[in-house]
Amino acid sequence: MRAFPTRGRLSGRLSALGALVLRPVGDLLRKRASACLLTALLAACAQPPTRDTIVLLPEKDGRKTAVIVNNGGKQVTLDSPYSAARTGSADVQGYKSGPADVQSAFGPALAAQPPRPASFLLYFAEGSDTFSDEAKRTVEQIFAEIAKRPAPEVAVVGHTDRVGTDQSNDALSLRRAEFVRRELIGRGIAADNISASGRGEREPIIPTADGVTEPKNRRVEIIVR
């Protein structure tokens, strides 16, 4: 088993190679995007008009959210549960909908909603090369979650605390995620269905000043979807 990646083994050569490859790819994507935009505009002109209904649904965790509805320059902002809008020709009117209306108009679409992604956290002591007993239990939960889902995929996302530079933490978080990815592949997840990425120090659980060591932020998040 390979050691869990710790700070200070940044491969400068790899990131330079990445920059070399990514720049031309970016140019190509930009060119393609403008061609797509033109195609989309032409397609939009050819489409038959529609009468639209939009309803904002309540959030599971009560967060404040909004949808801004723009039809031919007229605009309505939906920002409370079941606030709704209907469009006509270059017009949009706000109204109040409700659970029964939504169920009767959108029942099949809502019934086909995939299960919400589930998230798990694994913590490592710096330098440790095995899962702790707690981490092993989390891994069991991850496999139980995978078994419940249609066409399951896994995304492994590494995080660091704020000790070290942004660049070194990006690289460290990616190595941590790749370590966990290899471990999970070793335990039976198909390599095609699991990705690894690093968020560096961008998403701390506990916000700290730069340079502060915080074990709760040194973690790997496993998203099952």
Binding site: P49, T50, R51, D52, T65, T87, L110
Partner: peptide, 23 residues
């Protein structure tokens, strides 16, 4: 989007329907 409407999404759950108008 629908053929005539653009929805700006500010992090949220919602439903949208687009019913073609017979011409």
């Amino acid at each position: 989007r629908t053929p005539a409407t653009i929805l700006g999404i500010r992090g949220t759950e919602f439903v949208v329907s687009a019913e073609p108008i017979a011409r």
